[in-house]
């Protein structure tokens, strides 16, 4: 097996290019790879198309930092605070640059990534019929269901093949095999659809740990381009069994991103003025320690014995 363990800075430098489409935040509210968000901003990646059902504040940060040309998603804002100030400034006032929004619903984005994941020419669905998403995003087609006896409109969704999926998991081995538990949103579809996968693991474990429970693997290591060991990469979003949500951090970000100048100060303090995620964790200090899940509610082991 190929050793894929490299530092996050290297993974972003090598595998994220200007203009790439990136899935970030595929799991919806948890496991959002904010450590990669910061690194993308530090490396001044440009013209990105961020693909995410909802992205919480991750997309808003990258938009404010001028990294984003397009949002392909269902919801863009700050789950704790509501609206995303940078998203609004970019869309309404072209600041720091104008962005395009490719409107989706959660399910239509799921269908697009599912079609991408499985090589389907398109997915067909009933959702978003009647919605103006069909008018503001010209990517969809309405047609008649060819298998229905009566006239029945359906929506065709073209496949989405992102350049990179950046995904956070609880544990991985150095070869890119990983375990993830808790809700997984569109992580599996994103990993199967993307050209490249960058995996951020809270913990690096022996390969035998992952091999002991293949049922907890969402996608195997051979689909993974790079594995990075980044504890609390998801902060301030939660990760099942590891980290609680830092709701106050989302609220603070919401307050401090209200004005452009204040946002730039926030960006300096938390991203540009911090060399890497280890320094970010050190800066959080006790605040991060307090978010660590200390309780114990393990699942019962499954027996895979062959005889």
């Amino acid at each position: 097996m190929k050793d894929r363990l490299i530092p996050l800075g290297e993974a972003i430098a090598e595998h994220v290019r200007h203009g790439d489409s990136l899935v970030m935040g595929a799991s919806l509210e948890p496991d959002i790879p904010f450590a990669a968000t910061h690194e993308i901003i530090r490396q001044a990646k440009r013209d990105l198309d961020i693909v995410a059902p909802i992205s919480d504040a991750s997309s808003d940060m990258m938009i404010g930092a001028g990294c984003v040309a397009q949002i392909t998603g269902a919801w863009c804002g700050n789950v704790s605070g509501g609206l995303g100030h940078n998203y609004r400034r970019a869309f309404e006032h072209g600041m720091p640059r104008s962005i395009k929004v490719n409107d989706h619903s959660n399910f239509s984005l799921g269908m697009a990534l599912m079609a991408g994941a499985h090589g389907m020419p398109y997915a067909a669905m009933r959702s978003i019929l009647g919605s103006d998403i069909l008018r503001s995003n010209p990517a969809f087609r309405i047609t008649e269901n060819p298998f229905s006896a009566e006239a029945e409109p359906i929506v065709l969704v073209p496949p989405l093949i992102p350049d990179v999926a950046i995904l956070s998991v609880q544990r991985a081995d150095r070869y890119g095999n990983s375990h993830h538990w808790g809700n997984c949103g569109l992580m599996q579809e994103a990993a199967l659809a993307a050209q490249r996968v960058i995996l951020l693991a809270d913990e690096i474990v022996d390969a035998a740990v992952i091999a002991s429970d293949p049922g907890r693997v969402l996608f195997p290591g051979y689909l993974v381009t790079a594995v990075c060991h980044v504890p609390a990469a998801c902060h301030p979003s939660p990760m099942t069994g590891c980290w609680r949500r830092d709701n106050a951090f989302f609220h603070d970000y919401h307050r401090q991103s209200r004005g452009r100048e204040d946002f730039l100060a926030w960006l300096d303090e938390w991203v540009l003025g911090v060399p890497d995620h280890a320094a970010y964790r050190a800066k959080l200090g006790q605040q991060l320690d307090d978010l660590r899940i200390m309780g114990d509610a393990p699942s019962v082991a499954a027996n895979y014995a062959a005889e």
């Binding site: 909802i54 269902a74 998203y87 929004v101 619903s105």
Partner: peptide
């Protein structure tokens, strides 16, 4: 004003 968008709301309302 650009609001955050559908999330899953369009799907729930439709189906």
């Amino acid at each position: 004003v650009k609001l955050p968008g559908s999330g899953g709301a369009a799907d729930i309302a439709a189906m």
